[in-house]
Each structure stands twice: as C-alpha cells, then as structure tokens.
Simulated scan of single mutants.
Amino acid sequence: MSEMEAVAYALDEHRSAPAAASTEAIRLTRREWQVAELVARGLTNRAIAENLFISVRTAQGHVEHVLTKLGFTSRAQIAAWVVSNAQESESRFSDHEQR
C-alpha cells in the first residue's frame, strides 16, 4: 500500500481518479502548486489568501480546482500528495546525482 493509499484508508476516503497517484498524469498550474504546498503546510483558505495576496474566494477556488484535478475529497489528501511528490522528486534527483 502506498503512502497516499494509507492516508486515504486511514481517513476512510476513496479517490475517484485512479490517475491521482501518477505525477506525470497531473498538470497543476504554478499557482495551484503554490496553493497545494500551502495546504500541505496546514494553512486555511484565509491564510493562503493572505500569503498569496489574493481574495479568500480565489484561494477557495484554487483549492477546489486542486481537489478536482487530483480526484481528492480532502485537504489531508492534498497534503499527503504534496509530501509524496516531494519525496519522489528528491529520490529522482538523488538517483540522477549518483549516475
């Protein structure tokens, strides 16, 4: 069971999009990545809005788009996905350095 599957299982949630685990299949905009990273840090929509100098409603919209694109139903799933992708990126970078 992958880390994301374990988080989803622990939260008793089910992903609707099987492609959500594949980094290559998902294309978030630069702003959506920023929002996803802020969600992973535990920020509320209001805090995200303040951090990015946007309205709360715009921040909420970005969070909703990220949830939809990833096929998730909770912010915790976004956080787990961001952490998982960061670990994958570090692993790929480490592998590339060793070659």
Rank of each mutant, 00 (worst) to 15 (best):
H62N: 10
E32T: 05
N85A: 08
G71K: 06
S94V: 01
H14R: 15
F53N: 13
E64M: 14
Q98P: 00
N85S: 08
V56S: 09
A19F: 03
A10G: 14
E50K: 13
R41F: 05
T68L: 11
F72E: 09
A86K: 11
M1V: 12
A36G: 04
G61T: 04
S84F: 03
W33S: 13
R99I: 06
L11S: 11
G71Y: 02
Y9F: 11
Q87C: 01
G61A: 06
Y9W: 05
E64L: 11
E88R: 15
M4H: 01
K69D: 14
A10D: 09
V56T: 13
I78P: 03
I54T: 08
A20G: 11
R15C: 09
L70I: 04
S74W: 02
S84W: 02
S2L: 04
S91G: 00
R30K: 09
A21E: 08
R75I: 02
K69F: 04
T44K: 04
S2I: 00
S22Q: 07
V7P: 01
W33H: 14
T44P: 05
E5M: 09
L43I: 00
E24T: 12
A20T: 11
A86D: 14
Y9H: 10
R57Y: 03
S89C: 04
L28K: 07
E64F: 02
G61C: 00
S84M: 05
D12N: 14
P18M: 08
R57A: 15
R15A: 06
Q98D: 13
S74M: 03
D12V: 08
R31F: 12
F93A: 15
A80N: 05
W81K: 09
W33F: 05
Q60V: 01
T23D: 10
A40Q: 05
V35A: 13
A20V: 13
Q34K: 01
V7T: 13
A25D: 10
V35Y: 03
L70R: 08
E13N: 12
L52K: 04
E3R: 05
L11I: 10
T73W: 01
